[in-house]
Amino acid sequence: MPEVGGSKGLTVPGDPFLSTVDRVCAWLGSAPEKVDALSGAERSRVLGEVADINAAAASGDDGALYAQQYLLDRIYQLYTKIPQGQTAEGSVVVYEIARLLETATAAAQDALIEPGLIEEAPTEPREYLTWLKNTARNHRVYKHPYYHDFIRNAASHDDLRNYVMQESVVDGRFDDLLAMMQVGTAGAAKMEIAANFWDEMGNGDHAQVHTHLFNKIYEVFEISEDELSRSLTATSLLNGNLAVMLCRQRALYAEAVGFLGMTEWMAPDRFVQVVHAWERLGLPEVGITYHKLHITIDSQHAQGWFHNVVLPAAESADMRRAIARGILWRLNSSAAYLDERIPSVAA
Rank of each mutant, 00 (worst) to 15 (best):
T87V: 06
H307C: 10
L238K: 11
K81F: 08
M180R: 14
A108K: 04
G172V: 00
R230F: 04
P16W: 06
R45F: 04
D22G: 07
D176S: 12
A31S: 08
D110F: 03
Y146A: 08
A58N: 04
P145G: 13
L78H: 03
D171H: 07
K292T: 05
S299F: 05
G63H: 03
K34A: 13
G29K: 07
H212I: 05
D159R: 01
P312E: 08
L228V: 03
A313Q: 06
R137K: 12
G261E: 08
T263E: 14
A67M: 08
P83E: 10
R161T: 00
R74Q: 15
K216R: 14
L293D: 11
G85H: 04
L331Y: 01
K81Q: 14
N241I: 00
I53M: 10
E89A: 10
V12H: 09
V164R: 11
T87Q: 14
P125F: 01
Y337N: 13
G6L: 09
A106M: 10
N138E: 14
Q208V: 00
G40S: 09
I151M: 15
V286D: 15
L132I: 01
R230L: 15
Q303S: 08
R230V: 01
L65P: 03
T235Y: 14
L328G: 04
A107F: 00
F150Q: 13
N153E: 11
